[in-house]
Design a protein around this nucleic acid. Structure first.
Length: 608
RNA sequence: GGAGGCGUGGUGUAGCGGUUAGCAUAUCGGCCUGUCAAGCCGAAGGUCGCGGGUUCAAAUCCCGUCGUCUCCGCCA
């Protein structure tokens, strides 16, 4: 080794020791006769001091040092002079007085700061282009460490419980259901393609048929869909499957794992244990989403019944047309400026709402419980009867000073706009405790949802998810009524995982495929291997998949999973460091039996 | 596929119709033995993303385009 210690471990206990350190020049402070270098490696910073009188040769070498030079130094650990300790540094009690400096490699001036200042404001394009420098920054290095600890703790937890980690293929088969596949042309089989797996879903079920009983895998998954801050075309799941279990077994296992792992990665407190269990219907009613952020209240309330007969046409018509009128309270929002309210109106329009009705409650009602003009501030109160206003205010259970915000529209638009508005209120009114982790389970999802475009029912989760035992009877007669043995785990409003108990009998799987409108020829071509397998003694089984990237991002307290992925892609799916995707040679294409068509857009010309 | 934001020395930014394109920091040189955002003095560094248009005059206004970010659609 070119070093005897790392740059994060020397303390007062090491005073007097001769040490060799090696790392990067984080910062230098050149006082002429005396030079201070903060030497950095993966573990931290150590101040090394070079004195021109004591070591003139070392001082001459140290004078050459610049940021990010790679250097090895030999010296002696000593206490810093009284009053010159640095409490901000783990190694701040000591310094290493250097008698020999060995420059291992000079470095160009980096394109952005690596030494800890301001780097989070650097344009992400640059950070991605020079990702190896970005990762050198302490914050990003810590994220890599955190992610490693997460995956390691998961592996240890399941290994200790007799789970087997089994690898599954990356080159697999395309299935039209679900997300768009990445496809890979076959050289040996002209005009045929592999697909990268969207998840190991079918394979883990086949492992159950194989008798593995307890399977897990830290699995890479691929989906060729548009990206988001929390979505990358390739991402990592904790994939898990068990035999002879019901939903509560899986939930219990995962909940225990999360409770065990969370304190290793975060100082934040888990808000509620055991995790709250919320039905899908309740989540949609109270939060407007199936992944509620339970760190704060401001639940939605339904005003549809109150305003169904209202003089106010916007509300009345919304209800008459099968829609809803629902609201949420902005605490202390009654004195928002008109401009701020307009901002909130624009905010909900983003989600399809046509407008935002608002009632600011500025004062208490009179003795009869009636809110007079003095007690309200609203653009719609003149269209509402005193009785309606009282009922609305009561439903909202507001205090004077609060603002009621109301959306009337189709249920989907109401849910989407108000769920996002609730989060926006949480941010603006500072209602979200930043030191809490709110886990919850969402259960009793519908099994199927109707796809208006394709005019058929689709699986909400996937086509192997089992209905609840008591609901199978409605599969053909009333598909929308059937609830699934499916569950999602949610953390602070992020869906971090989901799973289900699977169908394991081929007669039920046949009924499911029929309900989805798939012909037996189609199911045979796509899922024949699975249906075959189910005829050879498939055990009851179920599982779950957890998003490792999202969990790591939440624990690392970053808003994008890119920050916890070593080499992520941009929102356009490109890798700026290696410049991928990129053209291939004609010879490569020929070997793959592929002719490429010219593209009309100017942007997409083959790179020269 | 759609909407919006951003793009100015290496980096972060100001300027938003007429400026010598300002500031900070980094970089380079000089001075400096207790700094840790070291300090002081000095220097160099800019096709204002790209293309077109409007105008006497464009970093600034308009159109297009490229890149990037966020969101909608999409993501069983």
């Amino acid at each position: 080794m070119l070093k005897t210690h790392n740059c994060g471990e020397l303390t007062a206990a090491d005073i007097g020791q001769k040490v060799t350190l090696a790392g990067w020049v984080n910062r230098r402070r050149d006082h002429g006769g005396l030079i201070f270098i903060d030497l950095r490696d993966r573990w931290g910073l150590t101040q090394v001091t070079i004195d021109s009188e004591a070591s003139p040769e070392a001082h001459a070498a140290a004078a050459q040092l610049r940021g990010e030079y790679v250097v090895q130094v030999h010296g002696t650990v000593r206490a810093r002079p009284e009053g010159f300790e640095n409490p901000n540094l783990a190694t701040g009690a000591i310094e290493v007085i250097i008698h020999d400096v060995n420059i291992l490699n000079p470095a160009k001036t980096p394109p952005f700061y690596i030494d800890g200042r301001d780097a989070d404001s650097v344009d992400e394009t640059l950070r991605l282009t020079y990702r190896y420098l970005d990762l050198r920054r302490a914050r990003m290095m810590n994220n890599l460490v955190l992610r490693h600890q997460l995956v390691r703790a998961i592996r240890e937890y399941f290994s200790a419980r007799d789970f087997l980690e089994v690898e599954t293929p990356i080159l697999l088969k395309s299935t039209p259901e679900g997300a768009r596949d990445f496809i890979v042309p076959s050289r040996m089989h002209p005009q045929k393609f592999y697909a990268l797996p969207q998840s190991p879903q079918q394979l883990k079920q086949l492992l159950m048929v194989a008798g593995v009983e307890r399977y897990f895998q830290i699995a890479r998954c691929f989906r060729d869909e548009d990206l988001r801050a929390d979505r990358q075309p390739e991402f990592t799941q904790l994939d898990l499957e068990m035999s002879f279990v019901d939903a509560s077994d899986i939930r219990g296992l995962i909940e225990e794992m999360l409770i065990e792992v969370t304190p290793l990665l975060s100082d934040k407190e888990i808000l509620a244990q055991p995790f709250p269990v919320i039905t899908y219907a309740e989540a949609m009613a109270k939060y407007g989403v199936d992944r509620p952020d339970l760190r704060f209240g401001q639940t939605l309330f339904d005003l549809s019944a109150i305003v169904a007969e209202s003089e106010f046409g916007v509300f009345r018509n919304a209800v008459a047309n099968g829609g809803q009128v629902k609201g949420v309270v902005y605490p202390g929002g009654a004195d928002l400026t008109r401009r701020e309210i307009d901002e909130l109106t624009d905010f909900v329009k983003h989600y399809g709402a046509k407008g935002l009705a608002w009632i600011g409650v500025t004062d208490a009602p009179d003795a009869d419980g009636v809110y007079g003009d003095d007690a309200l501030r609203s653009q719609i109160s003149k269209f509402l009867s005193p009785r309606e206003i009282s009922a609305i205010v009561q439903s909202a259970s507001v205090e004077p000073g609060d603002l009621i915000l109301i959306v009337a529209d189709r249920p989907g638009v109401v849910a989407q706009s108000l769920s996002n508005l609730r989060l926006e209120i949480g941010k603006r009114a500072d209602l979200i405790p930043q030191d809490k982790l709110a886990y919850c389970w969402v259960v009793d999802f519908p099994l199927l949802e109707y796809d208006e475009d394709e005019e058929r029912w689709q699986a909400v989760h996937h086509p192997f998810t089992s209905a609840r035992d008591e609901d199978w009877q409605y599969l053909e007669s009333d598909p929308g009524r059937v609830l699934a043995k499916a569950y999602d785990v949610v953390l602070n409003g992020w869906e971090i995982g989901g799973g289900s108990i699977r169908i394991y009998r081929s007669d039920l799987q046949d009924r499911m495929f029929k309900a989805l409108g798939l012909s037996s020829a189609e199911t045979e071509a796509q899922f024949g291997h699975l249906l075959d397998a189910f005829q050879y003694g498939a055990p009851p089984h179920g599982g779950i998949a957890l998003g490792i990237d999202r969990m790591a991002a939440l624990f690392a307290e970053t808003s994008t999973i890119r920050d916890v992925i070593a080499f992520p892609k941009t929102a356009a799916g490109t890798d700026l460091m290696v410049d991928a995707p990129s053209p291939v040679t004609d010879a490569q294409l020929k070997e793959l039996h592929i002719d490429v068509r010219p593209v009309k857009t100017k942007s997409n010309q083959p790179a020269g």
